[in-house]
Write a protein that binds this DNA or RNA. Structure first.
Lengths: 203, 203
DNA sequence: ATTTTTATACCAACTAGTCTGTTTAATTTT
DNA sequence: AAAATTAAACAGACTAGTTGGTATAAAAAT
């Protein structure tokens, strides 16, 4: 048999992700990755056939984790499925709580990072980002549908764009939280989204 | 005296900004800027003493334009100062209308771009970004204060973070709009912020 | 009014160093 | 033995920045 390459590969992925969020992808050199990961060039190119291959893998891993977390949030709130309004609010609250624990601004989202240097990435990668965002849209739209069925809406608003607002606020809050160095800002912003939903679906 | 260098300088700034939003700052080479601007290296380094100098100038120009536009929006809505709720809503609607005219996703905001490769920029530049965002916060907070004095709030919410939400939604919407290639998304997202304010300050 | 000067604006070629990626041979771990 | 990794040299393209010189146009001097 042979030795296990997974720890090395995981270390490369973790350090690369952090570096990309600090420097941008184009601004991160392979040599920087080697230094942070404490590995050699041979090891890097053993695991990734190119820097572009790393970019793709980073996004694959990130989006898989992101969507797995969405899935968890849906499952955790599934018991409230009989009260869709409560379920929706609980879902949002889960992310409020998550962001409220941060002691430093969230280091950033690869969707946002990649979107600000789009020419560096292939269409395949951009498609993956788009797919992930649309998965969030669908998940929230379904919860909204159920809620509207039961409660109606205080004022008529566009359902699709309301679904998008969750991700929009997250992405925006990550940027502003970093720019102002205010770790709690993201949780506060999500709380406003929850407020908005509460006002829209008053009981 | 001598010939006028302003057109050249302006061309460099315009093309650089576009390139930075496409490739990121680190991902944009001076040679690329030369090619797009149809100038030579000598001309570039005549106008900017380094690439870092360009980064600083780009942000100076961008934030100045951004804050000038904020100032315009405040002045345009100043006649409604006697009805602070209407003024606030009109202020937001102005940006809804502006974003609704876009036929392609907004190319991006330099605050967001710079925030996703923070190591590339000096503290001075980051301070400029922070100052600009805080200026937005103050402007909205003042309008909110006046509105609350007259109308109160339907539910108690944090005023400072509510002020921030305008910029948060803009930044987030720029990213998601680009990622999904949906030009109208930004206007729709701002509309939700307006809805939220209307629900908070029902008459 | 014509020539000369001057500061600015700009160009083309060059330099020193960095970038990603390759190669090779030896070594370690299971 | 097979897989994972080190170490180091190397190539070719690209990087930011420099240099020495030239073009332009207005002002100054004649």
């Amino acid at each position: 048999m042979a030795r296990d390459g997974k720890p090395t590969r995981d270390k490369i992925l973790a350090e690369s992700k952090a570096l990309v969020l600090e420097n941008g992808f184009a601004g991160t050199s392979v040599d920087q990755i080697l230094e942070r990961s404490q590995i050699t060039k041979g090891a890097f190119f053993y695991h990734f056939k190119s820097k572009a291959d790393l970019a793709r893998t980073l996004m694959d891993v990130f989006s898989a984790e992101d969507l797995a977390d969405l899935d968890n949030a849906l499952k955790e709130t599934a018991p409230l499925i009989g009260d869709p309004r409560q379920r929706l609010l609980k879902f949002v609250q889960r992310y409020v709580d998550m962001m409220a624990t941060l002691e430093a601004p969230y280091p950033g989202c690869l969707y946002g990072s990649y979107s600000y240097e789009p020419s560096q990435f292939s269409d395949e990668i951009k498609q993956k980002i788009s797919d992930a965002i649309l998965t969030w849209r669908s998940a929230l739209e379904e919860m909204l549908d159920e809620t509207i069925k039961v409660h109606g809406m205080k004022i008529p608003v566009d359902k699709k764009s309301l679904s998008d607002q969750f991700v929009v606020i997250l992405e925006g809050a990550f940027i502003i939280s970093k720019a102002l160095n205010e770790p709690k800002l993201t949780a506060e912003q999500l709380k406003h989204f929850k407020n908005y939903l509460e006002l829209l679906f008053e009981s």
